[in-house]
Design a protein around this nucleic acid. Structure first.
Length: 174
DNA sequence: ATAAAGGCCACCC
DNA sequence: GGGTGGCCTTTAT
């Protein structure tokens, strides 16, 4: 089941973040994409490939406001992830992993009641459209190694360390 | 309809 | 450490 793409006032913009520049896309329905791309060009390309019929206006101001809300104030703005039923079940499961903790790909598969679909779980996690807010970086392999990360392993490590240290003692609502 | 490609895992060496 | 086969979803032929 696919939902509607962003409809009302779709926009996107770039902002600094603790993990390098990010690209945030949003509409009145909420954030539909949060990425940590190599370049602005690739971010824009990905966005248009994902939503071919949507015309996003550029709005760095709003993007930066959202970024401050997320990374400085530790808030979680409304999100609007778009994907299949299977993907949603996984993205939902991810959001139940507490900050500072990790789960394995196999455990997520268990949690959604599809213990044998581990491989597909990995794929669906890789398709997470809203990095950080849907904490796909908190999923690692059963053998304890890190597994992959769409935006580079370096970035995954940074996020885990960041959550481990300075934010374990403060308030957060992720 | 079907093939190919995945952020995996268990099992072997 | 590295390689193989099996598993399941998604996307592109």
């Amino acid at each position: 089941m696919r939902q509607l793409p962003p409809q009302s006032h779709p926009a996107y913009g770039y902002s600094p973040s603790p993990f390098g520049e990010c690209c945030i896309a949003f509409s009145n329905d909420g954030i539909c994409a949060l990425t940590f791309p190599e370049s602005r060009e690739s971010a824009f390309f990905d966005l248009n490939q994902r939503f071919p019929e949507t015309d996003f206006k550029q709005n760095d101001d709003k993007a930066q406001k959202l970024a401050r809300q997320i990374f400085e104030r530790g808030e979680k703005p409304l999100i609007h992830p778009i994907g299949t039923e299977f993907q949603h079940s996984i993205w939902t499961a991810l959001q139940s992993i507490p900050i500072g903790k990790t789960m394995t790909y196999a455990q997520i598969a268990q949690k959604i009641g599809r213990p044998k679909a581990v491989r597909a779980v990995g794929t669906a996690i890789g398709a997470n459209p809203i990095a950080f807010l849907i904490p796909c970086h908190r999923v690692i392999r059963t053998d304890g190694s890190l597994g992959g990360f769409r935006w580079g392993l370096e970035c995954k490590i940074k996020m885990l360390e960041w959550e481990q240290t300075k934010h374990t003692q403060t308030n957060h609502n992720y």
